[in-house]
């Protein structure tokens, strides 16, 4: 009976992880295929990676993406953390419902709507589209993710810690800097990384808000994917996966070391 349940569980785990990682793994394997054809294995080769280095447009788009991600994640982390403090600490204030609604909505709002509405705003305000419009758009839609992460940390936080600091003579600003901030820092870092990742990943919102000179990496990849499967895309994908994978391993190791 018990053994049967264990077997079923193990089987389910294997099937689940095969589904999750199988397609990604295939992509990685075929990026080293010497043949241009997807289904024919023509031997191991790194020629597609070498080709990427020659692609100036691609390298420019990587640079744009990194800049956008960095700037937008900083803004989103700042705004998102303040919003989380407001939601977690200020109790019921007027227009709280609108505020909470505006924060949670982008979490699930289809990207086409966000992208279109932001574009119309930039057009109406007469702002020329480019890097900074993408930054503003990304800072808007990633902010809510920071808020959710930080807010859940604040909610699981003993209020008495802040009261104790005030009781011992620390004013509100002092209390925030010496007690609250150090204790929610892991959540703020996690929120920042989440915002960074989401920005790097976004195609739709960037497409609406980008200008002619500001093509991001996903936009570049997308325009190539539309042309069909190619080993070059496999190679870009593998590099992107590798960066994310290394970052994840790094932070897993970091958080593990922190836990001890």
């Amino acid at each position: 009976m018990r053994a049967g349940a264990n077997l079923a569980r193990t089987g389910m785990l294997i099937a689940g992880f095969a589904l999750l990682y199988g397609p990604i793994l295939l992509l990685v394997i075929y990026s080293f295929n010497a043949s241009r054809l997807v289904t024919v294995w023509g031997g191991f080769s790194t020629r597609w990676y070498a080709a990427l280095l020659q692609d100036a447009q691609l390298i420019a788009s990587v640079r744009t993406s990194l800049l956008v991600a960095l700037f937008s994640a900083v803004i989103a982390t700042f705004n998102g953390t303040l919003a989380a403090i407001a939601l977690a600490r200020f109790g019921r204030f007027r227009t709280r419902t609108i505020f909470a609604g505006a924060i949670y909505a982008p979490l699930v709002m289809p990207e086409v709507i966000l992208g279109l509405s932001l574009l119309l705003l930039f057009v109406a305000l007469g702002i020329e589209r480019g890097l900074w419009t993408i930054v503003a758009a990304h800072a808007t839609f990633t902010m809510c993710f920071v808020t959710v992460v930080v807010q859940s940390r604040l909610a699981g936080f003993d209020r008495a810690l802040e009261e104790a600091a005030m009781d011992l003579g620390a004013g509100p600003a002092r209390t925030f800097l010496t007690i609250t901030l150090p204790l929610i820092r892991p959540a703020i870092v996690a929120g920042f990384l989440l915002a960074l990742t989401l920005s790097l990943d976004d195609l739709v919102i960037a497409s609406f808000t980008a200008g002619p000179g500001s093509t991001t990496l996903p936009m570049r990849v997308y325009s190539q994917v539309r042309l069909g499967v190619s080993p070059e895309i496999n190679a870009i994908s593998t590099l992107m996966l590798a960066v994310v994978g290394i970052a994840l391993l790094f932070f897993a190791a970091l958080s593990r070391g922190h836990g001890d």
Binding site: D167, G169, A170, P182, L183
Partner: peptide, 20 residues
């Protein structure tokens, strides 16, 4: 007068020791 300016101190039920 806010708590941080009162000449009174408190021992909390949860102790509220700063973990960091």
């Amino acid at each position: 007068v806010p708590p941080h300016k009162r000449p009174v101190n408190m021992m909390f039920q949860s102790y509220a020791l700063f973990p960091h």
